[in-house]
């Protein structure tokens, strides 16, 4: 994994979402994730990037190969300076994900990933960090 470096993709169009997916898929393939996991990674990136695009207008997705105690994984960080999420517990509830509102799709992302962290402040923005470890 010597040749893999973190990559940050600026998100402000649908084309950027596609580009971020591509980077995530390629990097997870290079890290040795199976095909399903590559697709789940792409889906995760899609959801996070779409939230940025639809509700914050712009932001970044950073995809980082990580290593911790011998385990290899991929970390995705979504960052925006958008409206922020008022009730984080609410957006992580199942059923909310079908509402199409800000944060929709996050319960699905949380279940596909091994680690999930979200920080958000109203009027300041949102930061979501997820990690998937290669099993």
């Amino acid at each position: 994994m010597a040749e893999l470096y973190p990559e940050t993709i600026k998100i402000d169009s649908v084309a950027d979402i596609v580009a971020a997916r591509q980077v995530g898929r390629n990097m997870s393939r290079q890290l040795g994730f199976g095909t399903i996991m590559q697709s789940r990674m792409a889906t995760t990136i899609s959801e996070l990037a779409r939230n940025i695009f639809l509700y914050a207008g712009e932001g970044t997705i950073t995809i980082t190969p990580i290593e911790r105690e011998g385990a290899i994984g991929l970390q995705i960080t979504a960052l925006d300076a958008g409206p922020g999420i008022a009730d984080i517990r609410k957006v992580l509830e199942d059923g909310y994900s079908t509402s199409g509102a800000l944060g929709a799709g996050l319960p699905g992302v949380r279940r596909m990933m091994d680690e999930f962290d979200i920080q958000s402040a109203l009027g300041e923005g949102t930061k979501v960090i997820v990690v998937k470890w290669r099993s």
Partner: peptide, 24 residues
């Protein structure tokens, strides 16, 4: 199969969500 997989991930998400709702 790549296309099919990508579509089915959404079904998978729904499936996982139902499982978690069931336990709730």
């Amino acid at each position: 199969f790549s296309i099919l997989t990508e579509v089915m991930i959404e079904y998978g998400n729904e499936h996982r969500s139902v499982t978690s709702m069931r336990s709730k």
